[in-house]
Design a binder for these strands. Structure first.
Length: 574
RNA sequence: CGGGGUGUGGCGCAGUCCGGUAGCGCGCAUGCUUUGGGAGCAUGAUGUCGGAGGUUCAAAUCCUCUCACCCCGACCA
């Protein structure tokens, strides 16, 4: 492609609102432009990157036996109502009405569509297993879009769906996708780790995320990894072993209400009563689907709201406002306790459950109760893990300690079970003639966010350094002076030769000065650069340079093709 | 949804406090010179000052409303 015939609007200055280096590079390099908050347009270079990555994904999916289809971005709302997600997807779902006033949704994922596609057609175990995938636009009306392609409202995703007759078969289907994912990200130049994650609105039994670890502020998610490598989960999901030195009394003592003037926070109460935070229990009031409930964690700990939400099985979970706290407990913020909160759900963390004689709020201004005990003094509705794991906690498996890392989610896999097949009547007859719901899985890869994630790693202060597998073109061909006939003659000849060999080349035929061309080439980041200028032409040579390496090779103009091929081969190995 | 901020030529910004009819850099166009790391000189084009309403002799500037975009938060008793 000739630079003069394509559209690569590079920018000299940074767009002020681009936070991440990868986002800035895409903007400055002429890869993307923003149309609206969280909505981006892909320019010719980006389109080629998307094609490259899509092709990698296709090859690995096809290799794993998946079949490509395309499902509409639109879906009748009715299907989402039947699975219950019309409500649970909440405000994130883009909705609209057609001219007949029929409710439609713009899909953020396609479980409903794909399940409806196969239900009614797939009726026998002989037709299973089945794996359908597509590469499609998705819409999610994010609360706060940010980080460019990383968290947009519209994005492209590869989503696959497996259908199996039994758990054993499903386990094979799931593993095949996990294997495919590692292969995909490896080819894209990313080292990823697989972590356990929450299933969110997707539902189902279990899920994993494929995370690319970063040191920068680009991480959109915290993940907890055991230092012995035995465990990895995102922070929402992470379980842990508590290593705190907690003193458990032998005898239960009698409750005692004491004045704690001016002591509302954990720090103030521990200082005032001169007790350790592990002897205190926080009682947090939440509104779960508009009903008040109390969550209790040890004083030195914080609530993991995702765990809490899962324990409650609610859709909406919000902390109660000070006014609500006053209304439901009779005391201002800071003095909530479980004693006397009879008519609301109380969820107690196991770390609280094992304590004896702990301190809680008295539901009275500036008063706390000493020597409170679970069961004796109040009845928990449920004792279950609702505590947020933090760095330094023990790994839930083995003897390791958890480390907090920042990561970018580039893929995910969900064990959906039969949630969608049951809701939408996707059933089959097994070998014994029994009707059963199909066991499903769903698997996503971020087609637009992954290239941006790649850039968080592959860049320097001059611009992008694409891995060969993801680059929009392999070679940047740069004649330094378009007014010199010799430069142009050699460049045109080299351009023709490269194209004949099938090498993807971007030929900078603009009548720009050398500095402009060099800077644009560095910014755009093609893996290999061929420079044609007086210095080397004197010796009948052109210059060959890898974007990722400092050195320059002089190659006789007629031998350039094999030299490029050799360099490409070498770069691919890295 | 709460808080903060920003909207001025294609891009990046100044001007707003203290009202007087819009400016800088880059880019763009033309010409000459220059030509291996974002050229120089000359000439030139491009602005409903986000939108609506109001105050005033006069509004980018003051007031009211509104829209868009960005950042932070929506986190602990």
């Amino acid at each position: 492609m000739r630079w003069s015939k394509t559209y690569i609007p590079t920018l000299r200055q940074n767009q002020s609102d681009a936070e991440l280096i990868s986002h800035q590079l895409l903007l400055r390099g002429g890869y993307i432009r923003k149309l609206a908050s969280g909505v981006y347009l892909y320019l010719p270079l980006m389109q080629r990157v998307i094609s490259k990555f899509s092709q990698i994904v296709r090859e690995e999916m096809n290799r794993a036996g998946a079949l490509e289809v395309t499902m509409s971005v639109l879906c009748p709302a009715e299907l989402w109502q039947r699975t219950g997600r019309y409500i649970s997807a909440g405000k994130e779902q883009m909705r609209m009405k057609d001219r007949h006033d029929h409710e439609m949704v713009l899909c953020g994922t396609h479980e409903e569509s794909v399940t409806s596609l196969i239900s009614g057609e797939v009726k026998s175990y002989r037709q299973l297993p089945l794996n359908l995938y597509q590469i499609q636009v998705k819409f999610r009306d994010e609360i706060r879009p940010r980080f460019g392609l990383m968290r947009g409202r519209e994005f492209i995703m590869k989503d696959a769906y497996t259908f199996d007759a039994d758990e054993e078969s499903f386990a094979r289907s799931y593993q095949a996708m996990v294997d495919a994912y590692f292969a995909i990200f490896k080819r894209a130049g990313l080292d990823v780790i697989k972590v356990e994650s929450d299933t969110g609105t997707m539902g189902g039994k279990a899920a994993h995320e494929f995370m690319f670890l970063v040191d920068t502020n680009a991480g959109e998610e915290t993940i907890m990894i055991s230092d012995d490598g035995s465990y990895a989960a995102n922070a929402e999901k992470a379980e842990f072993r508590d290593l705190a030195d907690v003193q458990i009394d032998a005898e239960l003592q009698d409750m005692e209400t004491v004045d704690t003037p001016g002591a509302a926070t954990i720090e103030e109460v521990t200082a005032f009563l001169k007790v350790d935070a592990t002897r205190l229990v926080k009682t947090l009031l939440y509104m779960a689907d508009d009903k008040p409930m109390a969550a209790m964690v040890r004083g030195d700990r914080d609530v993991n709201e995702i765990k809490l939400k899962n324990a409650l099985g609610c859709v909406d979970l919000e902390m109660a406002t000070p006014e609500q706290i006053l209304r439901y407990t009779g005391a201002p913020v800071g003095f909530t306790g479980p004693v006397g909160l009879e008519d609301m759900t109380i969820i107690v963390d196991p770390l609280v459950g094992e304590l004896r004689n702990f301190v809680v709020g008295a539901n009275e201004n500036e008063k706390h109760i000493l020597n409170t005990n679970v069961h004796r003094d109040f009845k928990p509705s449920q004792v279950t893990d609702i505590t947020l794991a933090v760095e330094g906690d023990g790994s839930p498996v083995g003897n390791g300690r958890l480390l907090a890392k920042s990561g970018i989610e580039v893929g995910n896999t969900f064990m959906l079970g039969t949630k969608y097949s049951e809701a939408l009547g996707a059933t089959f007859l097994d070998a014994s003639g029994e009707e059963k719901p199909i066991i499903m899985g769903s698997y996503g890869v971020g087609i637009t966010r992954t290239p941006q994630a790649v850039l968080e790693k592959y860049h320097d202060d001059k611009g992008i350094i694409w891995p060969v597998s993801m680059a929009p073109y392999l070679v940047a061909l740069i004649p330094l002076n378009m007014e010199k006939e010799e430069h142009v003659t050699v460049a045109e000849k080299t351009y023709a030769a490269l194209r004949e060999t099938g090498i993807e080349v971007l030929y900078d035929d603009r009548t720009e000065r050398a500095g402009v061309k060099f800077n644009d080439a560095d910014l755009v980041g093609l893996p290999i650069r061929i420079t044609i200028g007086d210095k080397s032409l004197k010796e009948g040579c052109v210059e060959l340079k890898a974007r990722s390496e400092p050195g320059v090779e002089l190659i006789p103009a007629d031998d350039i093709i094999p030299a490029v091929e050799k360099m490409a081969q070498r770069l691919k190995q890295q």
